[in-house]
Design a protein around this nucleic acid. Structure first.
Lengths: 343, 343
DNA sequence: GTGAAAGCGCTAACAG
DNA sequence: CTGTTAGCGCTTTCAC
């Protein structure tokens, strides 16, 4: 680590420590001449200000945090998260702010993590995977840690918020399916305690009227498969299934085909999140892309403003696009597979 | 933020600051009685030690860093990275160590990032996406920042290293293809300056003997598509293509089918990395799973040891498994799709 | 415009 | 076993 400190640079440049500090931060007028001397000295000694000393003096860590309480395995198969993080980073990098990622196994660890973050490690936090009456909301309010909620949180809260309208694409898909003649349309949701799963399920219920064909999954392939089996075993089995993410949809699609059903002739299928491979499946999967990177950018910008003392505000990032593909009867975009043996 | 400091807790408990500090760290014997008093006081005041003050005094940030120089878009479609990070986190969480993620646009920013990390932000770094004669290796050595190389780096270096054997699965796939009667086997590699792409390409060359059917891609779907087109346009077009990742393989597969080729009858295809959807494609894609989480765990453990002063060592994590699926002629694992109209 | 000195909140000698 | 006293390296009044 750097044994050279601001004092060494000050000595080398023949000025006071304060001058070195201000020459770099620009927090007070410095003559061009001294500034040049200071920069030269810093360059010569290869000095970089210590982040920890600066954090202590400034009461600012120059870092923000994302804490995930999910199972590592779930994180690994999630297409939303990496894109979201990439968006966040693109904003943070403008201001030399670091992103701290913490994965915790249980609520206890999560509370400790937030406490320690709030006390000198991070200047703010991004909250994902919101649940109804999420305990983290009042908790972080108490901790007085600037926070941005990512998702359509309904409860009372003092924070900035990035929302999307997940109901509209669900309505569009259902309308499309009805046009195609479907009457028994099912929905495999994510855990209903998550606000985004619930919003999607609610849009489905509003459209369909009852919950006889609604099944609550957990976003894993296993649940997608199991609930598809359950739905297909019904006496009046659905002719179309909307899944709340692509992982469940693909598992369901795969199961249905294994049962001898043809997609979309016997069963139409749609997903959500538009995994980068979904367009390449056969049949290609109808899904909803939601530009997670745009949401990441918006969240990072809101948080930066909050940290600087701005008033919290809610931003609606509307970037949901339905991609109608073969799995719901859209015409094939790639040529049909004709068996042809070349010499 | 916490206005309550160690001094408040000391006063509340009627002891000295040092006692409070040691009661928590256990760095010197404390009577059960005082410790209880201290803990009670800390609890009552809701005090948590300030990470930044601690970092400054300890000269330890309790954080490690991963810096990515990739395009955010590439990160978003990469199945290796999130799983790797999940593995890293599972080890870090044991010791309250944070992970700092930084995405930088260019080399200049990357140097600054490492400098600032080395100076108080992080105690060590994980190096991914290694290239031949990677400038970061001597640079970090200079910075004196404990580092673990993730990948089979050949140049001289003083660091710990996590390697895998990527050649074996390539050999296995080629052997399998030859058994199936293939003679013209092509390879679409990643950028050959990356050590892992090169290792795979080298294994291919060693097996096949010449580079007439080798094409250098960049891991994106676009390059997979373009190079597939190029290979299929050859007078003696290949009957099998090995891709260096699944994204390129799927794009290639999709292109080939659009050209009217049947997979695997006309063209056999294999990928690498086993994206979580690859098993669900039709035809399912032959690929190599490499347990990125295991590599993440190994890297984090090595780095932790290095930070504590252990001697650097190289660990081979051998977890590559070839999954032979339909795209190379393995029997279908899901039942065939029989068109059947239900009432 | 610049310097000197007082913290930021914690840890670690050093005494007792 | 516990209290006192210096720092860690930077920022920021407060003087000049």
């Amino acid at each position: 680590m750097s044994r050279t400190t601001i004092a060494d640079v000050a000595r080398e440049a023949g000025v006071a420590k304060a001058t070195v500090s201000h020459a770099l931060s620009g927090n007070r007028p410095i003559s061009e001449e001294t500034r040049a001397k200071v920069l030269a000295a810093a360059e010569k000694l290869g000095w970089v200000p210590s982040q920890s000393a600066r954090a202590l003096a400034n009461r600012r860590a120059n870092a923000i945090a994302v804490v995930l309480a999910r199972d590592p395995e779930v994180i690994a198969n999630d297409s939303f998260f990496p894109a979201f993080i990439a968006g966040v980073e693109s904003v943070l990098s403008e201001t030399e702010t670091a992103l701290i990622l913490q994965v915790v196994p249980d609520r206890d660890a999560e509370e400790r993590a937030y406490r320690s973050l709030a006390h000198g490690r991070a200047d703010g936090a991004l909250l994902l995977d919101l649940r109804d009456d999420d305990w983290r909301v009042p908790f972080l309010d108490d901790l007085d840690l600037p926070t941005v909620l990512v998702g359509a949180y309904d409860g009372p809260h003092p924070f900035s918020c990035v929302r999307t309208d997940d109901a509209a694409p669900i309505r569009d898909i259902i309308a499309h399916l009805r046009d195609e003649g479907h009457e028994r349309i099912a929905h495999v949701s994510g855990p209903l305690s998550y606000v985004h799963s619930r919003a999607r399920a609610q849009a489905y219920l509003d459209e369909v009227g009852d919950d006889r064909l609604l099944r609550e999954g957990d976003f894993t392939a296993a649940s997608g498969r199991a609930l598809t089996a359950e739905l297909l075993a019904l006496p009046d089995r659905p002719t179309a299934i909307l899944y709340s993410n692509d992982t469940m949809a693909i598992a369901g699609l795969s199961y249905a085909r294994a049962q001898g059903l043809s997609i979309p002739a016997d069963l139409a299928i749609s997903g959500f999140d538009d995994d980068h491979l979904s367009a390449h499946l056969t049949p290609a999967l109808t899904s909803v892309s939601s530009d997670p990177a745009a949401r990441g950018r918006a969240a990072a910008r809101l948080l930066r403003a909050d940290i600087l003392g701005a008033d919290p505000r809610t931003e609606v990032v509307d970037c949901n696009i339905v991609h109608f593909r073969e799995s719901t009867g859209a015409p094939q975009t790639t040529a049909p597979t004709v068996s042809r043996r070349t010499p």
